[in-house]
Design a protein around this nucleic acid. Structure first.
Lengths: 261, 261
DNA sequence: GAGTGGTCTAGACCACCCG
DNA sequence: GGGTGGTCTAGACCACTCG
């Protein structure tokens, strides 16, 4: 394999670049291109979450590059949590069906005791037309179908999170309260397994708000109680937004944990 | 230079491993040891913030390893923001005197408009004996001297942050309101230049609280207004805690930005 | 043009896992 | 023992910066 823009690389001749004879306006290193190809295979489902991807030597042969180049590509994918390396075993497609992954997207920790995953009670699940603001954030057209979900999450039986979600209707066709109730574990696991949509990264904007009457009742606190409000947009492959979420967190016995590095 | 297990950090070729014949109980790759040595030089001030460190080939010669090994060590240091690589120029010790670095530790962003750095007004600067809780978090003994600082930060003249800090008195001897007022730019820049203490990472715990009367007055809002409360412990080299900070953020026109990756 | 970091290769060997 | 990822080396060439 040859790089896309004029590049040395002694190995073979058939590169895509040779045809284009352009100078290098946009230089992209070989390992980045390999990374792109591997990402495509992840996205297309050639290797499914939890499965092992081909070994480094195998990929090196397939792409006609050295193992070191494949290695650097996979290094970056591992750093982005798209794959996980396990020495002596292989490289595996990341999945949300793992304790490891659960707390990457749940940052609310108990002030004391060990973190554990909350239980969900679904308040409402329905389809509706996307309001302008939701459409904008999900990159849809205003009025497009979206799935709306409202749930409460309990830690040790104590209601602590009230959450609303908006999901693109096209992708999450057939998502019902029943399927949500049946499913055990984090919703992202369900989304990954049943709807072929893997959340890769997310952006959150956090504010402090006063609990309104309805939410206060769900959390069994007085109206006006201060709550953390986290508005999240989650992205799948290709930086495509596929989830909007607004969580209200009761932070009397929990806190939002963040590392600045 | 040879690895520690099977061998020691000496630069000769013999190595202790051959003698011991033991399997490796604690194996540390060579590049990690190089990384440690470079970190020591950073910590000792052999290369100061903003300065260029020796080139990769130079370090490779010094440590008697290949350039690739030095490279991998520096890669990790760069990933941890201890150094910055600039192609064609060199590798430089990170410093807080840079626009780049400012927003690594200030996550409060305006809902609209471009981020910019707030102005500080210092309310109180004094020395006191560490309360038990402060001492615990700063790894001091209860009653040890600490510097206490209270300030308000304004965005465009609007008071938005009330912050309290506790710093180990031993390190921050001579930190006065005057010096804080004289200094322009982020406090971490002052700490780095004047007190030889560089913050390299921090942990934050975030909650929602109601503004108490005093803080509400400083922020010019009603008592009871919901505020974000961020409690931060900052660390310097060797994971040594050197700052405790409690910030109250008014989130009516700002939000705490966080990326989940 | 000289010096720096960045990419790519090829080959060797090590640590780890499993049958 | 054979496969996998992990480390280390040596050498070549490229892209970038600056004098």
């Amino acid at each position: 394999m040859n790089p896309v823009t004029p590049n040395q690389t002694t190995s073979d001749a058939t590169g895509v670049a040779a045809a284009s004879g352009q100078p290098s306006p946009t230089f992209s290193p070989l390992y980045q291109q390999i990374k792109g190809l591997i990402t495509q295979s992840l996205q297309s489902g050639e290797w499914k979450p939890g499965e092992m991807i081909p070994s480094e030597v195998e990929l090196a042969n397939r792409f006609k590059v050295s193992q070191g180049t494949v290695r650097k590509a996979i290094d970056e994918l591992a750093a982005e949590n798209l794959v996980m390396r396990r020495q002596g075993k292989g490289t595996f497609v990341s999945t949300h069906h793992e304790a490891r992954a659960h707390f990457r997207f749940l940052r609310l920790m108990p002030d004391e005791g060990v973190p554990h995953y909350p239980e969900s009670t679904f308040i409402e699940v329905k389809r509706l037309r996307a309001p302008a603001e939701v459409a904008r954030l999900l990159d849809l057209k205003s009025g497009d179908a979206v799935v709306y979900i409202k749930r409460v999450q309990n830690f040790d039986g104590v209601p602590t999170i009230v959450e609303e979600l908006w999901l693109p209707g096209l992708i999450f066709k057939g998502l019902t309260a029943e399927r949500l109730n049946e499913y055990k574990g984090p919703m992202y696991g369900l989304f990954e397994s049943e709807f072929g949509t893997r959340m890769i990264r997310a952006q959150e904007k956090i504010r402090a708000v006063c609990a309104e009457a309805g939410d206060a009742a769900l959390l069994r606190v007085a109206a006006g109680t201060p709550l953390l409000c986290a508005e999240r947009v989650s992205f799948t492959y290709g930086d495509k937004p596929v989830e909007l979420r607004r969580g209200l967190y009761l932070t009397e016995r929990h806190h939002y944990q963040n590392d600045l590095i």
